[in-house]
Simulated scan of single mutants.
Amino acid sequence: MDLTIGFLPKKYFSKSPSSHGGYPFFVSERLLYSLNIGEMYYPEIPDKQLIAFTESLAPYPLYYLFELNDEDDYKTVQQMLVENDIIFETLYTSPKSTFLLTTIHDSEELAHLIPTLIWQHNYNMSTFWSPHKHAFTIEKKTWNYGKYVELNDTVCINFNQPTTVFWLGHDFHGTDIYSNEGKFTKLGDVQQLLPTFIKTEIIEFE
């Protein structure tokens, strides 16, 4: 699998959350490293390879955060999680959204979660995951909608402790990594973490 890897300029996500080509979350100022590994079209990658990729970057347990903006979507995802015996909790609920946090303990559970992850991305919803449960909070933040702004419940990634968070955007273009942990200081070190079937070329984002 031939991919690219590169550090993301802070300008990509340092502005207000946006639904128009921007980043639909808020990152605290204590973030030190941000990078992208891509392009990875998850539906075409064998589950075993997705699991190996995930396990190379973070230990279990892993916490997956799903934002669901529709009651039918919520019921569908909830049913899929229950049927696969995946532990989840409602992290936050509001009139517009429900945020579910799942706990994944091993590769078998991750294999059961992958269909849910891909299903929701087919409906333009993104997913966050982290080995650190404390990474996620939901707070009111100002969103940029182009001609107007609005105060919305927003996923906030917090770096007041050692933290790494992974984000799969709704376009499947790759996996973003946000961290203040030393193992993500150098791209060469990250390349060494990846499974041998993944070959990465270092690129520079403008």
Results as ranks from 00 to 15, higher is better:
150 E>L: 15
149 V>Q: 14
92 Y>M: 06
103 T>W: 00
108 E>M: 03
170 H>Q: 07
153 D>T: 05
188 G>W: 04
98 T>Y: 02
100 L>Y: 07
181 E>N: 05
128 F>G: 07
179 S>I: 01
165 V>M: 04
95 P>Q: 05
185 T>D: 05
108 E>I: 07
197 F>R: 01
115 P>T: 05
161 Q>F: 09
131 P>G: 07
89 E>Y: 02
92 Y>N: 09
99 F>P: 04
143 W>E: 09
164 T>C: 09
115 P>Y: 04
162 P>V: 08
95 P>G: 08
99 F>R: 02
204 E>F: 06
96 K>M: 07
181 E>T: 14
205 F>C: 06
171 D>E: 08
146 G>C: 11
139 E>S: 15
147 K>E: 15
144 N>K: 14
204 E>L: 06
133 K>P: 10
205 F>Y: 15
150 E>T: 11
191 Q>H: 00
158 N>E: 12
159 F>E: 05
119 W>N: 09
154 T>S: 15
102 T>Y: 03
142 T>M: 15
138 I>G: 13
90 T>A: 04
102 T>H: 02
172 F>V: 04
114 I>F: 03
173 H>M: 06
161 Q>V: 11
122 N>S: 13
117 L>K: 12
104 I>N: 02
103 T>Y: 01
105 H>A: 07
130 S>W: 11
153 D>G: 08
121 H>I: 10
202 I>W: 00
158 N>T: 14
101 L>T: 05
122 N>E: 12
87 I>V: 07
88 F>T: 01
170 H>W: 05
168 L>C: 05
107 S>D: 09
173 H>V: 07
100 L>D: 03
125 M>L: 15
184 F>V: 05
188 G>D: 13
187 L>E: 01
113 L>I: 04
126 S>P: 11
97 S>P: 00
131 P>D: 07
155 V>P: 07
87 I>L: 14
201 E>W: 01
193 L>S: 00
203 I>L: 05
196 T>V: 01
103 T>H: 01
107 S>A: 13
201 E>Q: 14
96 K>R: 13
137 T>D: 15
98 T>S: 08
146 G>K: 13
135 A>G: 10
146 G>N: 10
131 P>C: 10
146 G>E: 13
90 T>N: 06
128 F>W: 11
97 S>A: 14
120 Q>Y: 08
96 K>C: 01
102 T>E: 02
91 L>I: 06
196 T>M: 01
187 L>D: 00
101 L>G: 03
90 T>M: 05
166 F>D: 07
149 V>M: 12
182 G>K: 12
119 W>P: 04
126 S>N: 10
116 T>C: 11
190 V>Y: 04
176 D>N: 09
156 C>H: 12
133 K>Y: 11
97 S>H: 10
191 Q>C: 08
177 I>K: 02
88 F>Q: 04
136 F>S: 12
97 S>T: 02
91 L>A: 08
165 V>R: 04
122 N>C: 09
105 H>L: 09
108 E>N: 10
132 H>G: 06
180 N>A: 03
165 V>E: 06
200 T>C: 13
90 T>E: 14
86 I>A: 08
